[in-house]
Nucleic acid binder design. Structure first.
Lengths: 338, 338
DNA sequence: TTGTATGCGTTATCAG
DNA sequence: CTGATAACGCATACAA
């Protein structure tokens, strides 16, 4: 591949002049033309690695997610990517599979590559508690896309999931649902927040007794959870006191609930209302289309990029928090129970 | 951030010695220890960009896909990523949205970053025909993951989709299906290959008249196609001569077919057999679980990495083709029509 | 306006 | 075994 030297020789100027043309600085017209001709002739493209070494910027950012086959992450990531390429930059994508050691490994690798910024979607609590994030954020602009906004000293964009869950409960209650099951994965802030809201609400309404068996613990938010959810739901639907509505903490699990209903001959939404969460594309196109909480995934991605731009500004590096408000979207998987 | 010079000073040796320790070359024991202590103390990590500039390798590869919200691509990509991190490398992910100009842009950007290799899943025909791929492949090891193995001079891993389609038709025919609809997207080699097989088969069996109206043209393989597929299928299912089986060119569309059936009160699989293609995770977890053609996505990803490793070997740069054999997986969305 | 010289952080070469 | 030094490709301060 050609270098700036080749162009300089071809154009009969110095490398400095070539560099100037490349960076739109003032040069004499004929030099400009000669250089541009040489560039075109040799199909020359500047070595971004060398440019990065100079120090200003590597024009690359890192995005860390948990899984690539979960559209929740990929929808946010796709929005981020759109913004990244607008800037002529590139994106390293890293999926941690929920392993905080791998997450740490990736983080240090990104640091070693001098990326301009890092966006972490669903950061692990371990690397927060042990100070890894703090350490990295000191050196590289960093943004969390998180279900929890309680961390301090970090740029965070999150969604007010308690509010979103409240909207779900208000809706279900007003539609006459009283036995409302809650389906969550094993670990995660966002599950905890929603469960708290669910409990708070039922207590507030004096819905006694609070049936503990309506809490189904399945594992994680990857496809592997689906069979677990199906089994758990099948059991639930066979009980004497069957819930009239099931809320699932993400659309993936909600789809599995619909499947379980179908397998047990329970009609959705006539005999069972199902509400999902996240408003991923699959919720829109599932059958019946899922009522769900819109997490504003595009907005999450765009805000993350805005925050990153802010974090890269040395003038005002004060961390910011942005809290988005989710909406409840009613589709065909839910109905009244009056 | 600290550099090799800081470590050298801290350890009381030269930068050369530090570099030797970093690269596991022979140094005196106490030097070794001093350097390692300094590295640990300052939490030093080598600048990968500087390493990349030296020329050997940037320890980064580029993966180009069409869409991030299609699990077909992401399952292959996830397999690739696993292999990439095993080598301590990183992955640039680029989604072209089917735009060949963007694809070209990405390609040159990756080149400018001196990536060690590029894997293109579903390369555009435009950039093949205009020589862009040839141009890039000359300078950087490149591998296609493709539905078409007819390109020459490239490393290609593909699946024998004609064979896979043949397996579908053999199965359907042997189960008594005679009116078999074929659902495809607008553009793409893989659609063409499958359609050819479908036509060949019906002609071979003398299935006259070949009902052209059983060919439904929907657009693309992104979620946006789903409503189009639903509409097209709904129309199809209302006709006098309703097909007893519908084959869809990917699982996404097949899911939409199931939805359309549900919306029209047609039972799957009792009244309609639905067969998908690709064996993405969603086919496994949809309801009813989809009969589908297993494209061996993991194997595609792994083979792509194997080919890339081969392509990076300067001894034998001869391009290779690998053709994988797909399997038909029977699940609950299909039944006999006898 | 232009060219020369230097540095970015690392590895490789060579002499010691 | 070690250290000084030259390269990698580019950008920039400085001198012309």
């Amino acid at each position: 591949m050609f270098t700036i030297k080749d162009i300089a020789k071809e154009a009969g100027v110095s490398t400095a002049t070539v560099s100037r043309v490349l960076n739109n600085k003032k040069v004499r017209k004929d030099s400009q033309e000669n250089v541009e001709a040489a560039i075109k002739k040799l199909d020359y493209r500047p070595n971004v690695i060398a440019q990065g070494l100079i120090g200003k910027t590597s024009r690359a950012i890192g995005v860390m997610i948990t899984s690539m086959t979960n559209s929740y992450y990929m929808e946010i990531t796709e929005t981020i990517e759109k913004r990244v390429i607008e800037q002529g930059a590139m994106m390293f994508l890293c999926s941690t599979k929920g392993d905080h050691l791998l997450e740490k490994e990736y983080l240090y690798n990104l640091m070693a590559r001098r990326v301009d910024g890092i966006i972490i979607i669903d950061p692990s609590s371990e690397n927060h508690d042990n100070g890894v994030f703090k350490n990295v954020a000191q050196k590289i602009p960093m943004v969390f896309v998180h279900s929890y906004s309680g961390y301090h000293g970090f740029n965070i964009v999150s969604v007010d999931q308690y509010l979103g869950m409240r909207k779900v409960m208000d809706y279900l209650w007003s539609e006459g649902h009283r036995d409302i099951a809650f389906l969550r994965g094993a670990n995660g802030f966002s599950y905890d927040i929603k469960e708290k809201c669910w409990r708070d609400f039922l207590k507030e309404k004096g819905a006694v007794p609070l049936e503990e068996n309506l809490v189904v613990i399945a594992d994680g938010n990857s496809e592997a959870a689906i069979p677990l959810v199906r089994d758990a739901c099948s059991n639930l639907l066979k009980k004497d006191r069957r819930p009239s509505a099931i809320f699932a903490c993400n659309d993936l699990m909600a789809s599995a609930v619909i499947s379980a209903a179908g397998m047990n001959g329970v009609k959705v939404p006539d005999e069972l209302t199902v509400i999902g969460h996240d408003n991923t594309v699959q919720s829109q196109y599932s059958y019946p289309p899922l009522s769900t909480v819109d997490l504003k995934l595009k907005s999450l991605g765009n805000t993350a990029m805005d925050l990153l731009a802010h974090a890269m500004n040395p003038e005002d590096p004060e961390p910011r928090k942005v809290l988005l408000e989710p909406d409840l979207i009613i589709r065909a998987s839910s109905s009244s129970n009056k």
